[in-house]
């Protein structure tokens, strides 16, 4: 009974996550960027932008430059979570990919690292006065949700073991449209419940900074306003101006 409820919950959560995020990304992609506003010093070529975005995505370069403490906790959390997520692929693949098997032991340490990073970020919200002043309930909610997921996950590893084979059977089953039993243990139910909540609110939360980063004109634009005229889509449909400055496409 509860297994069926969780199965339905996960179907709904998955659809909301995919469709919701997709719709938000479409909206981001369609939002006009009428002005040339790359944050300087900005790269002056496309290749340069790709490099800068690469550093931003993998190393959080701008955060590193602005605040070292937050950067440390952010890196700990994000890379910890990356490894943890990859480790969880074992529940969705059969046979398990060799490299997923390889990272299993490291994923456990990554779990602790992830929670440590989150606790650091939470402490910042509470301890630093000006950050506390600008913190909204949703800022806390995201941190607490992720901490809850991390802590219940770790506790299933170390305090209250569960039949992970049944968990895997449940998720492989969902991927084949059959509903199997989940182990009825509080660790599993809380962990999965929190994950479903996170999946559902992901598209309407600040966690959208993940896809959003790729649509930030201040990071994705090339600093070539001197060479080319910057035209947004709607503006290029207007009549030509008398002076013919070439646009980016080289017209």
């Amino acid at each position: 009974m509860l297994s069926t409820l969780y199965a339905v919950l996960f179907y709904i959560a998955t659809i909301l996550l995919i469709v919701g995020t997709g719709m938000k990304v479409l909206k981001y992609a369609r939002t006009p960027a009428p002005l040339k506003i790359p944050v300087s010093p900005a790269p002056r070529t496309r290749a340069g932008v790709v490099q800068r975005m690469g550093r931003e995505v993998t190393m959080f370069e701008s955060l590193f430059k602005s605040n070292r403490w937050i950067w440390i906790f952010a890196i700990l959390f994000h890379y910890g979570m990356l490894l943890v997520l990859l480790r969880h692929l074992r529940y969705f693949t059969q046979p398990v990919w060799w490299w997923v098997e390889l990272i299993q032991p490291f994923g456990v340490y990554a779990g602790f690292v992830m929670v440590l990073g989150l606790l650091g970020l939470l402490a910042r919200r509470i301890v630093v006065n000006r950050i506390r002043y600008i913190s909204n309930p949703s800022d806390y909610l995201m941190l607490l949700l992720l901490i809850g997921i991390g802590v219940t996950g770790l506790s299933m590893k170390f305090l209250m073991p569960v039949d992970i084979l049944m968990v895997k059977q449940f998720f492989l089953g969902l991927m084949r449209f059959q509903i199997n039993e989940l182990p009825m243990q509080p660790g599993v139910l809380i962990h999965l419940g929190l994950v479903a909540i996170l999946m559902i609110i992901f598209p309407i939360s600040k966690l959208m900074h993940a896809p959003g980063l790729f649509f930030a004109p201040s990071r994705t634009q090339v600093d070539n306003a001197r060479e080319f005229r910057h035209m947004s889509a709607w503006a290029s449909q207007l009549e030509d101006l008398p002076e013919s400055i070439p646009t980016e496409e080289g017209k």
Partner: peptide, 17 residues
């Protein structure tokens, strides 16, 4: 999305997992 989801995943055999 629902249809795609079904096509992707429904092809697998429903067998003892």
């Amino acid at each position: 999305t629902l249809v795609l989801f079904g096509l992707f995943l429904g092809t697998a055999q429903a067998e003892g997992l």
